[in-house]
C-alpha cells in the first residue's frame, strides 16, 4: 500500500493505492449515483450506475468501469460525468424504470439523466425489485443467516427465500426491508405480529415500557451469536 495521486474530473487528489474510485470520489464530494452499493456489504457491481470513464494516458484510450470496484493507482484519470458515462446511466435508468416504474426514487433520478417518456414500455410483474441484491448480501454478511438468495437466471431472476417458500431460517429481523433501496420488500406489523417474506413472527414486548420491539427469533439469534443473555435482550432501544 501507499499513497498515490489520481485525477478526478481534472482535479488532482491523493488516495491509498487500490482504494476504490467510488470511495475516493465520494470523500472528495463528487456525485456518483448508486443503487446496489452499501458500505456495510461486499460489492458486486450489479446496477452499473456508478460507471465512470477511466484512462491512464492523457488523450489515450478510455474505458467505462464501475467505480465501486475499480482500484485506483498512480496516474489514473477519471471522468465522472462524461458523455459516455451519461449515456450508460441514462439507458440503465430507462431500462430499470421500464422494469419497475414504481420503484422508490427511480423516476426522479431517471429524469435527472433526461429520461422522459419511457420508450420501452412499463412492466407490472416485477414489483419494485431491481435485483440490486442488497437484501441478499445484508442477510448473508450482516445478519449471517442467508435466508435470502437469488433464484433462476437472466430476465427470470428473482430474489427471495429458497425455492420461493417461507424460510425456516429467517429470524424476521427486517434488515432486508430496511436496506432495500426501492421499497420492494414488504414488512407489516400488527399487535404482536410481524409479517415478512410469507412468514409471521411473534414479537417480544419490552420488559420496561411494554411495547413490541423485536421478533423472538431475532433475540434468540442475537443471544446465540453474541452470548448476550436473554434477559439483557428484553429491553427496547429506548429503555436500554
Amino acid at each position: 500500500m501507499g499513497k498515490i495521486k489520481l485525477k478526478i474530473d481534472g482535479r488532482e487528489f491523493s488516495a491509498e493505492k487500490d482504494e476504490y474510485v467510488l470511495d475516493i470520489a465520494k470523500r472528495e464530494g463528487f456525485e456518483i449515483p448508486t443503487y446496489c452499493h452499501n458500505d456495510q456489504v461486499s460489492r458486486e457491481a450489479r446496477c452499473r450506475l456508478c460507471v465512470v470513464e477511466a484512462r491512464w494516458q492523457e488523450g489515450g484510450h478510455s474505458r467505462i468501469v464501475t467505480s465501486c470496484l475499480y482500484p485506483a493507482d498512480e496516474g489514473l484519470m477519471v471522468e465522472t460525468n462524461s458523455e459516455q458515462v451519461r449515456l450508460v446511466r441514462r439507458v440503465v435508468l430507462e431500462l430499470l424504470l421500464a422494469r419497475t416504474p414504481e420503484a422508490k426514487g427511480l423516476a426522479e433520478l431517471a429524469a435527472e439523466y433526461g429520461v422522459g417518456k419511457n420508450r420501452f414500455g412499463a412492466d407490472t410483474d416485477f414489483g419494485k425489485c431491481i435485483l440490486c441484491g442488497l437484501c441478499v448480501r445484508t442477510c448473508r454478511e450482516v445478519v449471517g443467516v442467508e435466508a435470502l438468495g437469488f433464484r433462476m437466471r437472466g430476465v427470470l431472476k428473482q430474489v427471495g427465500p429458497a425455492f420461493a417458500e417461507p424460510s425456516s431460517v429467517c429470524i424476521g429481523c427486517g434488515a432486508c426491508y430496511f436496506v432495500c433501496p426501492t421499497g420492494h420488500i414488504i414488512m407489516t406489523e400488527k399487535g404482536d405480529e410481524r409479517k415478512i417474506w410469507g412468514r409471521t413472527f411473534k414479537m417480544e414486548k419490552c420488559s420496561k415500557c411494554g411495547r413490541y420491539f423485536a421478533p423472538k427469533y431475532q433475540l434468540e439469534w442475537i443471544n446465540s451469536q453474541t452470548g448476550v443473555a436473554m434477559d439483557r435482550l428484553s429491553l427496547c432501544q429506548d429503555c436500554k
Binding site: 435470502l148 438468495g149 433464484r151 437466471r153 429458497a162 425455492f163
Partner: peptide, 12 residues
C-alpha cells in the same frame, strides 16, 4: 450449507 445456495444452483 444454506438452502438458498441449493435453490440458487438448482434453478440457475
Amino acid at each position: 450449507i444454506p438452502l438458498t445456495r441449493v435453490s440458487e444452483v438448482a434453478t440457475f
